[in-house]
Design a protein around this nucleic acid. Sequence first.
RNA 1: GUGGCUAUAGCUCAGCAGGUAGAGCACCGCGUUGUGGUCGCGGGGGUCGCGGGUUCGAGCCCCGUUAGCCACCCCA
Length: 446
Amino acid sequence: MARVRPLSGFPEWTPEDRVVEAHVLSQLRHVFSLHGFAEIETRAVEPVERLSGDSEASKEIYTLGRLGASDDEDAKVGLHFDLTVPFARYVEEHQAGLAFPFRRYQIQKVWRGERPQEGRFREFYQADIDVVGRDVLPAHVEAEVAIVMVEALARLPIPATSMHINNRQLVEGFYRGVGISDVAGALRSVDKLDKLGANGVRAELNAKGVGESATDAILELARITSSDDAFAYAVDDLWHTSIQVGDAGAEDQLREGIAALAALVARVNAAVPGSAVADLRIARGLDYYTGAVYETFLDGHEDLGSICSGGRYDSLVAGGGFPGVGLSIGVSRLVSRMLAAGLARASRAVPSAVFVAVTSEETRAASDAIAMRLRARGIPCEVATSAAKFGKQIAAADRRGIPYVWFPGEVGDGEVKDIRSGQQDAADADAWRPPTEDLGPTVLHD
RNA sequence: GUGGCUAUAGCUCAGCAGGUAGAGCACCGCGUUGUGGUCGCGGGGGUCGCGGGUUCGAGCCCCGUUAGCCACCCCA
């Protein structure tokens, strides 16, 4: 038999680890629902031509074909690589049946054919929220979606997170003002400040034809960060010393961006103090963002990269008319770090709170009956698969992390033992109940 | 897609002058004949990723290949 080996980039968890992942997913659902987001699920595939809109992304698309397909039969569909593309198609297709502004959440797996490494997978969960308007979408929604995510992350058994927010208008206005034409390209270089350092970014910008003084100005801009509106004054000062081009449009754009970002950060921090920071270095590769852009980092785990990113866009649908703002949590990235770093672990691997021992195969029915009575009252339990020596049955329960073993007895229903403390007492299967915290697996912090 | 490193028991790894494999953990059994966890003793498990080559002889050297990990690219 061929050796079983892991497939790189396609993570699989043990039952115990899956408890942690399921807990994260359920917390996210809960918070999204509390904020009134409706859940949708889209099919796993989209037509290839819809997915491969930009050539860069198309390289990582997994296409679907039949083994029996003829050689000249081209793949028609591919697995989605994010949840935004399918959502855009969904909105376009179902717009008649949707109420706008449309608030939806969507938690599904996505697939990307890139080289995996720590925190980067080929198959992984994303949890997206978006609010999409019909023709208009008020600016305060940019704060609302951020607050939803910050609240959701705060409920997870992880260290604090900080959401770094920038504004495309601010950046574009500033860049135009210092004479940069390829704003997106320059921004992509600035985004690498962490990795390349100021000198590395400077070299890249030079190669892209950005002038020395403009480079100085935007590197300086990228250094600006604040958790309140202090950044606005810093930008203002820098603007006056850096301006190269008398472009009134650029300055208007800059001012709009500054005001929007200041209001946004203030609103998010008012809702969840200390959760957001204005960070003028945040770039985001995708060039369809037009307003707020977000990246979120886990304290002490900044090396993991952003665990929740997104931004505002002018229109979800080609042709316009559907402005929106959305954020996406990389659930698998987050969970893999939680598990690897031991940030959280499950109290046990199985749902069973009680392991009902079997005295002998002849009396198995008595054990089954006790189990049924416990289940009838919502207590998860399982019956021993073999009538082995009690010592072995206890060991079997212990290995699964099941806290109680029930021994059927001659009189009454027998006794139940807490195998952690050794405490054992006579019990009635219609009345006995474990403490709530023992009823199912729980997720323990640290 | 580019580059570097790695591949030995279920897991983590040792083996290094080339002389046909070992530890810890896990698992099973016994001590302890129906109440586990400790301890002691014993046991099962390996085509040394795969294919070829050099050699009297290859886990070890050479070539190829596949897979994994890390970095780049890009991103959750």
